[in-house]
């Protein structure tokens, strides 16, 4: 009887502390993953050199790919099946932008838009190229169009709003 009692007294807290530790670890892992995801998602505009005209296309290719095509929230109603074709064109746009070939960058994004025109993300990319080449009027129009297409995608809408603020413009409410 005493033996059983001692076992319960010792083992239960031990087990509880172990399981609590496991849960804590899991929670931390989840939080850390979320934090990484959040950073990946938000960092390019936020961490950009503070000159106001650095944007996603200049970030790494994998970030583009993740943001653009692996986030199920990033597109309203568009088919996900053709992502490989669009991704290839975005990579080409990135390469063109690195050497400041804005004509080629825009041409590649336009080609992607012809393939997947309902993807608001692609329209934001067009806006960023427009900013780079100093055409703030078109940048504003492209991003407003993206915002109108973003529908219920809060993250994308938030980012577009941020982008428009950078241009000293307000998004349509």
């Amino acid at each position: 009887m005493v033996e059983r009692f001692l076992t319960i007294i010792l083992v239960i807290p031990l087990l509880s502390s172990c399981s609590l530790q496991v849960l804590q670890n899991q929670r931390e892992e989840v939080l850390s993953n979320r934090e990484v995801e959040r950073k990946v998602f938000l960092s390019p505009p936020d961490d950009s050199v503070a000159i106001g005209k650095i944007f996603w296309l200049q970030s790494e290719k994998d970030v583009i790919a993740r943001k653009s095509f692996f986030d199920p929230q990033s597109v309203s109603g568009a088919s996900r099946k053709i992502d490989a074709a669009c991704r290839e064109l975005l990579y080409k746009a990135i390469d063109a932008l690195r050497i400041k070939d804005y004509i080629k960058a825009q041409a590649n994004i336009e080609r992607a838009i012809r393939i997947q025109p309902n993807d608001p993300y692609l329209w934001t990319q067009l806006a960023y190229v427009a900013v780079e080449r100093g055409d703030e009027l078109q940048a504003s129009a492209f991003s407003r169009k993206a915002a109108a297409m973003a529908g219920g995608n809060e993250l994308l809408t938030k980012e577009i709003t941020k982008f428009l603020r950078r241009l000293n413009l307000e998004v349509d409410q």
């Binding site: 825009q106 041409a107 336009e110 129009a141 407003r144 169009k145 349509d172």
Partner: peptide
């Protein structure tokens, strides 16, 4: 090149 252009005309809503 004849690029794609947009002209805001009516508010989206």
């Amino acid at each position: 090149r004849y690029p794609l252009k947009l002209k805001p005309a009516i508010d989206p809503a």
